[in-house]
Each structure stands twice: as C-alpha cells, then as structure tokens.
Amino acid sequence: MTPFTYERAASPEAAAKAVAERPDAKFVAGGTNLVDLMKLGVEKPTHLVDVSRLKLGGIEETPEGGLKIGAQVKNSDLAADPMVRRRYPLLSRALLAGASGQLRNAASTGGNLLQRTRCPYFSNVAMPCNKRAPGSGCSALGGFNRNLAVLAASEACIATHPSDMAVAMAALDARVHTVTGAGEARTIPLADFYRAPGEDPRRETTLGHGELIAAVTLPPPPKGRQVYRKVRDRASYAFALVSVAAVVDGEGGEVRTSRLALGGVAHKPWRAVEAEKALTGARADGEAFAEAADAAMKDARGYGHNDFKIELAKRTIRRTLADAAGRAA
C-alpha cells in the first residue's frame, strides 16, 4: 500500500475542495472496495479524504413522491428501510443480493455506485491492463473471462460493473446529486453517470475529480411489479454472472410500461432500452418476453469463457419479465 495522508472533511464542499486540489487524492467512505485495491497496489492515492462522517445520511420522501437517499446511508440501512421495502422492493432485494452482511454494514450508497469495475487482471498489478496501465493491453481478451462483459465492451476493456444496487437504480431512473470541486451542485441522471470503456477505460463515471456524491434521488416508483433476479456461481457472496432488474406493468395482459436493467454483463449497469421498446404495447406473454430478451442481447458478444452469458442473460430476462408480469415464461 502506498503511504498516504488522511483527513476528515468538515463539510461536503470542503471535502470536494480537498480532493480537487490534489490529483492523487481520493474520497473514502466505507472503504470496502478502495482499501482492498490500495492493498493490492491497484489504487495508489497519496491522500484520503474521509467523507463517512459528513451529514449525508438520511432517507426521506421528496415533494414529488420519490425518495432522497443520502450518499452516506449504509447499504444495510437502505435495504432495511421500510419505505424502500414497501415502494422500491427492487432496490432492497438488489442490495441484499450483494456482498455480505459485514460489507453491507460498511458500504455507503455513494461508494457502492463508485465501485471500480471488476476483472481479475485489473486487480493483479503484474498483469497488463489498459484500465490500470493505459496502453499495456487487455489481458482478459484471450484470458480467463468467465465473469466479464458481453455488452458494449471494447477491445480495450471487458471488465464488468459489480454493483447490484446500481442495476436496480438504473431501472428506477435514479438521479445522482453531486458537489463539484468548485463547490457547485450538479444532478446527473444515472443513465449518464457511467461511461462505456471505449478507447479509454481508465474512468468508469462522468464525475470530475473532486466531485462528491451527496445524494441519490428516486422518482416515484414505476407502476408494476418489481423483481430482482441475480444468477451467480454460488448461492451467496458472489458477483452476478447475470442479474436482471425488471418492472412490468402488465395489467390486463398487455405491457403498458416496463423497465429492464442488467448487471454482470457490461462495464456499467445496463439499461436495456431496446427491450423495453419491444415490450411496450406487447401482450404480456412468453413470446414477447423472448423477443425482449433477444432485443436486449442483440449486440452481445462473448470472449470465450463468457460466451454462455449471452444465452444465460436471455433465459434470465425471459424468466424475470414473466415473474414481474405474473405470467408463465
């Protein structure tokens, strides 16, 4: 671990300023991802600004009937919140499908969104990796890539975003509220929050250096039943091979609206917009769900070990849409 200095920020603005002023500074909250990567020599900040004690907690209703979640609300608390459980069960279930009890007790909402993408070659500093060492190549191409991306990956990077929470938030049209290094407030729809890897996979979000997440808001819950389904190699404490967040308003046998987001398949939580379009107005039946699944995975590409994820994703989408619509697959 590279030696670093540490400070506790007095306010969100001061925290943002403190990080903005130093190119090698980072925020730390629960530390469940950052500290691991520091130990491995993947992350090498020389200064940490602790934001975990800032007054960025609390879960409250918004005037328009949505929810405002403080960036420092712990994953455990968010999952257990009665309003979340009643109105956004998708989010609660996604949170509980992630990590372990101990990690959820430490991990914050903002930190969960900012987990680095996962790849076994990224976390091993002896390996070439474009994300860690730009231009060194992607070792996962032609390597062990069982759990890596099949959608919107590039030749530069096929890492996957590991968050379950963010998949639910993508489906729920969450918005991220930040304080920039210059002290300004900004609101970013989750759809614009993450970047595809493209030619430069170093950064995963559109946040500027020193930009601090203060809160996440959810609009009022969409109509329909919410289902989160995570498929993984073991029953607990494993990252998703594929996860599906679905909300289907299929009353009367016709899909009026739907939301579909996928985890474990891309560099970011993946909102399957094409599939949603295919579903709108369709009969809520197995055929429509299969078409939606095909639409969601139309541009998918496997890299060897992870070829199976394309078929697995389609099967899981069909099943989850059916469950959300209360129908047979």
């Binding site: 076994p120 091993n124 390597g143 759990n147 190699d233 073991r234 607990s236 494993a238």
Partner: peptide
C-alpha cells in the same frame, strides 16, 4: 463438485482467479 477451480492462465502461468472472491468455496447458503 460445484465450485472449486483454479484457472491457470497458460500465457502467464499464474492463477487468474487467485483470491477468495473469484476462487469460490461453498458459502453458508450453499
């Protein structure tokens, strides 16, 4: 029978999944 496999990467000779997040052993729920 269900989980444990070290993935040797023939290009480097290392175990690509060499930690307990990637090399799975049975968890309680299993």
């Amino acid at each position: 029978a269900l989980f444990e496999e070290a993935a040797n990467d023939a290009r480097f000779g290392h175990v690509a999944n060499g930690d307990l997040a990637e090399y799975h052993v049975a968890a309680h729920a299993d």
